[in-house]
Design a protein around this nucleic acid. Structure first.
Length: 260
DNA sequence: GCGATTTATGGGGTTACGTCA
DNA sequence: GATGACGTAACCCCATAAATC
């Protein structure tokens, strides 16, 4: 790698001590045009800074991305560069840093999104499993109530028609223990200790079905709202703190723990 | 030759300061 | 003396040219 001290047009420009000025300044414009011509005429214009120069510039940039004028002059003297070169190096460095920062931010956001998406998928599966389990429990509960009705119809018919007694409509009575078991299942499913603690009635069953039906709607809506790619919209990201879902805050208590 | 990187330029905007009516 | 308009210098960001690797 070839390095050289700066001896081209830029130095001439600095010598003039008239850095790029607003367009209003015609004298500055003409100065810059002169600079450009001289620069283009200089074929030995090796402009790369030395490793030491870069190292010094980098180390200062780490502590302050913008230079005070005094420090800029001092640094330029130390490195054998023109103050203008130092200023430009810092400008370019800020631009490079900014674009790299954008890349880093993008990577972080993308990873967060991927994590959320996979978490969402697993939650969806978990929800499906829970719904199947719920359906089975509902079937279990509704069976005995049907049997009860059949039994009462049976006894009514016994008054009129004794010919059917002891027929195929005979139902096995529900034991106290199985009723209690179902009651506790119900309490768990409904998320409460069941202050009443009584036996499960047909009304309870309907309430439960209704309750879970609504819940499912909610879950489905949740899935719908968040599964259609809306997470990718920047508007949503603006108020979406992924740390809350992925970070430590979730380790304390998660809403789905409620159902476990 | 070509793409990536680095250095530099130019345009446009902002701010601070001095001058003048 | 206070004030607003104006010019200038210095700096910034951004897009891009040019040189270099």
């Amino acid at each position: 790698m070839e390095y050289a001290t700066y001896s081209s047009a830029a130095e001439v420009c600095e010598g003039i001590e008239t850095p790029p000025a607003p367009a209003a300044s015609s004298s500055s414009i003409s100065s810059m045009m002169i600079c450009r011509k001289k620069k283009n005429n200089n074929s030995n214009n090796t402009r790369r800074f030395s490793d030491d120069q870069i190292k010094s510039l980098e180390s200062i940039f780490e502590t302050e991305s913008r230079l005070e004028p005094k420090k800029k002059l001092q640094l330029a003297r130390e490195l054998g560069l023109q103050p203008r070169q130092v200023a430009i190096w810092f400008q370019n460095k800020r631009a490079r840093w900014k674009s790299k920062q954008l890349e880093r931010d993008y990577t972080i956001l993308r990873n967060n999104y991927n994590n959320l998406a996979s978490r969402f998928e697993s939650l969806k599966k978990e929800k499906q499993a829970l719904l199947i389990q719920l359906q089975k429990l509902n079937d279990l509960i509704q069976k005995p109530s049907m049997e009860k009705k059949t039994q009462s119809m049976d006894s009514e018919s016994e008054n009129g028609d004794t010919s059917k007694s002891g027929s195929e409509l005979k139902v096995k009575p529900i034991s106290q223990s199985s009723m209690a078991a179902r009651s506790s299942e119900h309490a768990v499913l409904c998320g409460g200790g069941g202050g009443g603690g009584g036996a499960l009635s047909d009304d309870d069953t309907s309430i439960k079905v209704e309750y879970f039906g609504n819940l499912e709607d909610g879950l489905v809506n949740f899935a719908h709202d968040h599964g259609d790619g809306s997470l990718t919209s920047p508007e949503d990201w603006g108020h979406f703190d992924s740390d809350d879902l992925l970070g430590q805050s979730t380790s304390d208590y998660q809403w789905w723990d409620f159902w476990s």
